[in-house]
Design a binder for these strands. Structure first.
Lengths: 130, 130
DNA sequence: TATGGGGCTTCCAGCTACTGGAAGGTCAAC
DNA sequence: GTTGACCTTCCAGTAGCTGGAAGCCCCATA
């Protein structure tokens, strides 16, 4: 499988896949002409990466998860720990964004949004922290 | 006011303030000794930046907002538009994270997390996209 | 057999928004 | 006069790609 096909099937840009090889997340074989030759296992890993990245795991998390994935003898508790920590982080991010949203929502709601220069958004943003 | 004091009062690291000068968000005066000399207006702008960044506005958003802020004749609708777009983006991000959270939450919940190697998290992440 | 177009290769640079660190100047206190 | 905190500039690095240039390779069509 060439990079174009595996990119298509894994749902990742070819550039990204080359980058993943660069940082040694994958090690595809090479054809005689120098083209990367991806096997089913590579495709599987890339799909894994694509999904894990979409779920917001960092590259280093992915590296750890891939290692666990390839290790037949690892305990599922190791995986659960990484995923659980990540879940907590997602929860924190959601809470942060929610509070941003609330603050900004208040400001936007109070702004007339007309031709006049008076604007509570800027006033609100400019207030010295209390 | 030296950089240390203004950093303290605006709630930003000194490094970040130097960076903001670098990219021309602020233009503090200089003392005879080469030290940056911040006035109340600089402090005000930095506080504005600190809050706007905390609300997730990009630097370029901030630049636009600062320009609007300094423009006495701008219409509040301009500001409301920028803030409103940003609000939509926050909403999109929250929705994304929420769906990540749900997916990952399911995977974590289904994982025994014991010493056995069987783990639905890795299986779930490895599944070819449907 | 020539040619054209797409896909592949490497390498280098740039993006966002900082952050760390080195090397050195300045200032106030003791 | 010397310590130590604070300031300066400059260079490099972070994450995770992304864009572009220059140049092979492969296949189909004329």
């Amino acid at each position: 499988m060439n990079i174009g096909e595996v990119a298509e099937r894994a749902g990742l840009p070819a550039k990204t896949i080359r980058y993943y090889e660069d940082i040694k997340l994958i090690r595809p074989a090479r054809d005689g002409n120098g083209y990367r030759a991806f096997g089913e296992n590579d495709l599987h890993k890339l799909t894994f990466l694509s999904r894990a990245r979409a779920l917001g795991f960092t590259i280093e998390n992915c590296r750890a998860l891939l290692a666990l994935w390839e290790d037949q003898s690892r305990a599922s508790s190791d995986v659960k720990r990484i995923a659980g920590e990540h879940l907590d982080e997602i929860d924190r991010k959601i809470a942060d964004l929610q509070s941003m949203r609330d603050t900004l929502g208040d400001l936007v709601r109070d702004c007339a949004g007309d031709g006049r220069p008076d604007c509570p958004i800027l006033t609100g943003l400019g207030k010295l922290r209390s």
